[in-house]
């Protein structure tokens, strides 16, 4: 069944952990946009949601760091962070091991992805789910791109991973939604936390919503580090989502810099063909 929903959003821990410290109007608008994204995603009646995240040493460390990984379990626990820090209650989120396995087998035809039968969600997945599926009633297939411990996979490989996921999703009978989660320019967890290059973000999102592969892949890591900080390496998740959209163009539903959240809070989705969204399952 072709992909029924494809989007991307921020996952910054401050969005929940430091919520009250943001401008009230901006925060409320962000939360409304998040809920609307969840409504739109669920309206496509997905059987599962693939979340391409940039995890932060919850599961993988530099002793054995996969460039790409996909979870393969019937349930996942998260968030791993201190509940008082993230202000999201730790819970068990449903997965679908058999579906994960079928997706992984197709992805492996073109991308050497690692699989993980254990996976603890961190804010990269838990913050988006807190808004998008607050009842945790949709099975999740977690996917990860290493954006933390250089050397990092080249952007072109993140694109290839997104394409491989799309081929895998199209090959299963289930209705699958997919989101990428990450920050654009940001310098998180440093003394510069709050610094945002909003102009850089807007240009990135222009390329992303146009689904301009060549322009998206033209950034170098040196340029990203200089202009968008080490947090900018997470654009890999947005790029993978763009690749999974299969040439569809995107729409930016929200993009506002929120310094106390350390990012331009961003939500966007791709305009998949309507016939694809509305085709009944099985």
């Amino acid at each position: 069944m072709p992909l029924v929903y494809c989007g991307a959003c921020s996952h910054a821990p401050g969005i929940t952990g430091r919520a009250e410290r943001a401008d009230t109007q901006t925060r409320q608008a962000l939360e409304t946009a998040f809920r609307r994204m969840g409504d739109e995603m669920r309206a496509t009646r997905p059987d599962a949601l693939v979340v391409i995240a940039a995890e932060h040493f919850a599961n993988f460390f530099m002793n054995n760091m996969p460039a790409f990984a996909i979870g393969m379990a019937d349930s996942y626990e998260g968030p791993i962070e201190d509940e008082a820090f993230l202000r999201i209650r730790r819970t068990t989120v449903p997965g679908n091991k058999a579906l994960s396995r079928r997706l992984i087998e197709t992805v492996m035809q073109t991308v050497d992805v690692a699989y993980a039968e254990e996976w603890k969600f961190d804010h990269g997945i838990s913050v988006p789910l807190h808004f998008l599926t607050p009842d945790y009633d949709l099975p999740i297939v977690p996917a990860n791109i290493n954006c933390q411990g250089p050397p990092l996979a080249p952007l072109a490989r993140a694109w290839a991973f997104g394409e491989a996921l799309r081929r895998a999703v199209d090959a299963v009978p289930e209705r699958i939604a997919l989101i990428g989660t990450g920050g654009l320019s940001h310098w998180p967890a440093t003394p510069d936390s709050g610094k945002i290059n909003h102009e850089w973000d807007r240009e990135f999102l222009r390329r992303w919503s146009a689904n301009d592969r060549e322009a998206l892949l033209s950034y170098t890591d040196a340029e990203i580090y200089r202009e968008a900080g080490q947090g900018g390496f997470e654009i890999r998740t947005f790029i993978a989502a763009a690749a999974a959209a299969g040439g569809a163009t995107g729409r930016i539903d929200f993009c506002e810099p929120v310094p106390i959240f350390a990012v331009s809070c961003t939500l966007g989705s791709f305009e998949l063909p309507p016939a694809q969204q509305n085709t009944p399952s099985s």
Binding site: D23, P150, W187, A189, T190, P191, D192, S193, G194, K195, I196, Y225, G229, Q230, P257, P259, I260
Partner: peptide, 19 residues
């Protein structure tokens, strides 16, 4: 590592500018 400080006006000044 890659978490070096690069200079920033600070959240309060940044918020005031955005406002």
């Amino acid at each position: 590592g890659v978490y070096a400080a690069t200079g920033y006006e600070g959240v309060e000044a940044h918020d005031a500018r955005l406002k």
